Simulated scan of single mutants.
Amino acid sequence: MAVPRSIALIATGGTVSVAPPSADCQTHRGVGELVPRPGDLPDGIEVVPRDALGMSSRRMTPDDLWTLASTVTEAIAAGSNGVVVTHGTDTLEETAYALGLLVETRVPVVITGAMRSPHHSGPDGPANIRAALVAAAVPDLAPYGPTVVFQDEVHVARLVTKMHSTRIAAFSSPAAGPVGFVAEDRLELLLGPPPGTDLLPGRAAPSVRVGLLPTATGIDGSAAEALTPDVDGLVVAALGAGHVSPSLGAALVACAEAGKPVVVTSRCPDGALLADTYAGAGSERELRRAGLHFAGTLSPPKARLRLLFGMSAGTPAAELFPAPPPAPKR
């Protein structure tokens, strides 16, 4: 007989909970309608449903992420053996990472959703919720931090991203692939837990504004100059391995010299940021020398959340994004 596992099912809205026939996907069902029917779950899984935000994920704000993190923390403190959050897919990866920043995951925390509404042909929500509940009932998943379960695959929050806008197999982790999968009501883990945690040393409600600036051919410093007065920090989705145009580089350096931390990420979905390969205006070498911070493999949206919540809790950007050790001399 399986050991009973109490799993909190927290609904926030999104396609997975759209109430048919809501053609515009604006009306959401309560969490009670998302709970699998009796007998549809393996023995020993007891679902404790709870409604949270009830909105499309495109409407999510940092304040909403803080509220959700508090709700997940309360569920864990109340004795839940695992937590599943249902969520819209547009910003699901950001919410998963925000929970990694803000929640001490002593038990498995899983985020899932759906790409097809319940009133469309072949809705994927019920299967995703079921797989997420099965995964959340396995204690061995807790050290992985928050995970995303979609199409029976398990992805860690730091690496997962929505790679397709409409397919039901929308999520993947370009850098490493899934860390596990669900099959025949069991969780199979393929890779060990990540070597570290993204949990912030201090957590506080969001109190700062952090901008996110994209780059492309010919993007100069005007956008950064316009943003600088209105933000407390700035993240730039740089070209390649951490490069920007000379004009944009000068504007970013000026922002940092004004006392506002600037974090460099890459617009590429995979790969590392360089430290000391290219020189010249706008290169990674010059940006690092000017005091800008580099976010490693974090995507631009996730780096923004790390800077936003870290600054809100008083953690310096240099601690949030530590510089890599110097490369060995050749």
Rank of each mutant, 00 (worst) to 15 (best):
A175D: 13
E153N: 13
A137S: 15
A131V: 10
F150Q: 04
A176K: 12
S165Q: 12
A136F: 13
F181D: 05
V179P: 01
A131Q: 06
A137F: 14
G122H: 15
T228C: 03
T147K: 10
R209V: 15
G218C: 10
F150L: 07
D230T: 15
D140R: 14
G221A: 06
S222Q: 09
D185W: 10
D220G: 13
P118W: 08
R186M: 01
P123Q: 10
I129C: 05
D198N: 02
A175G: 13
S207G: 13
E184I: 11
A183Q: 14
A142C: 05
L227P: 01
L199D: 00
A176D: 08
S117D: 07
A132H: 06
P146Q: 08
L159A: 11
L187K: 08
D198A: 13
A131L: 06
T197D: 12
E188N: 06
G192L: 04
T112E: 03
G211P: 09
A157H: 12
P194F: 04
L199N: 01
P146M: 09
P146I: 11
R167N: 06
P126Q: 12
A226M: 10
S173V: 08
A131F: 02
A136G: 04
A216P: 02
M115I: 11
R116G: 07
A224C: 10
R116P: 07
P194D: 00
A142E: 02
R130N: 02
V182E: 00
D220H: 03
E225T: 15
A224R: 11
I129R: 07
P143G: 08
A223G: 05
A135R: 01
G196E: 08
V182S: 03
R116E: 08
F150K: 06
T197Y: 07
A135K: 01
R203A: 06
A127W: 09
L141K: 01
P195K: 10
R167L: 08
H120C: 08
R209Q: 12
V182I: 15
V134D: 00
D152Q: 15
T147G: 06
I168W: 01
A226V: 14
G113P: 00
L189H: 07
F181I: 11
F181A: 08
D220C: 05
P143F: 01
A137L: 09
R203G: 02
P123C: 08
G211C: 09
P146F: 13
V156D: 02
V138K: 00
T215Q: 02
S117I: 03
A223E: 00
G180T: 14
D232S: 13
A175T: 13
T147W: 04
A183W: 15
P126K: 12
A183K: 14
R203P: 01
R167A: 09
A224G: 10
E184L: 12
T228E: 03
A170G: 04
L141T: 00
P126V: 13
T217Q: 11
G196K: 07
A137G: 10
L227V: 07
H164V: 03
P139D: 00
P229T: 12
G221F: 12
L189I: 12
K162P: 03
H119E: 08
V138W: 11
A157D: 06
D124Y: 09
D152P: 05
G113F: 00
A142P: 05
K162G: 02
E225F: 09
H120V: 04
R203L: 02
P139S: 00
H164M: 04
T197S: 15
